[in-house]
Amino acid sequence: MIPDRANPPPAQANLATLPAPAELAAAAAADASPRPTRLVGSLGRLGRLGRAWESARMWGAISSASARRMLRYRAAVLASIVSNIVLTVLRGHLALAVWAQRPGLAGYDSTAAVTFTVLGQSLVTTFAVFGGMIDIPWRVRTGSIEVDLVRPLGFQRWYLGLEVGRAAVYLASRALPAGIVGVLLFDLRLPRTAGAAAAFAMSLGLALLVSFGLRYLVALSAFWMTDFRGVQAVSALVMMFFSGAILPLVLFPGALGTVAALLPFGAVVQTPMDLYLGTVDDGPVRALAFQATWALVLLLAGQTLTARAIRRLVVQNG
């Protein structure tokens, strides 16, 4: 029941009897003083551990909301499951056919080749190597970005929180079904040791950070550019090509190969794949350190660029 509907306040009579603003404000201030219950003040009671726990729950809730948002589109999720399974079957058979013709191509046997294909596809979808998936350009264009700026949370963190949710959905709805079908249908290689499996699992987390770091920088460019699509398309191509998803980076000839091995893109697909297959030359620690370094550099760069983007928006607004 809305009180007003039953008994609307008499508009004009009200005004005549209203006290002056000064008195009212004073009255309100007097009322407000014995209210220690403002939430802002009540945070201090939590210990450091309590605060960390609260913080973890908050980020969990943000990622979960991001994931649930995608899962609302049931048909799209279902379609992505089916299409990824079909694609896995096709690409797996294609790889088998190629390696049957040219055994030992790229130093892979046919099992390694199928594993590379299926795993590559899973990594590409989970880490959105095809680019985009960060909402910033659209929000800048429509002005919704203002809503992001009145939230009491860092801008980059917020989008990372959303990204974790997205990656989880993609992992569950694209990578896992494809991987399961791959294991059932083809003679996929599994990590040889528990250590390799653990290193692979760790590398997945770092790959997500690197992939996010890259796409976030690209998305931020929307603050400076009116037409964002060009940057988006070019960056997606570069990311795809140098990630090692199309062709293993070891196959890149000469200087191109050297450069490709140093760029961050390989940290998204090639490095996890190497750790999975156990084909890293200098052990897993170095591979993980390579990923971690790029993750740190990209996230710091993202932070710096975020500050500049926001300053630009706040000072120029357009």
């Binding site: 939430l39 609260e54 908050m58 009491p152 949370l153």
Partner: peptide
């Protein structure tokens, strides 16, 4: 989500 972000008891 607002409850989590603003840590409302």
């Amino acid at each position: 989500l607002i409850q989590r972000i603003y840590r409302i008891p």
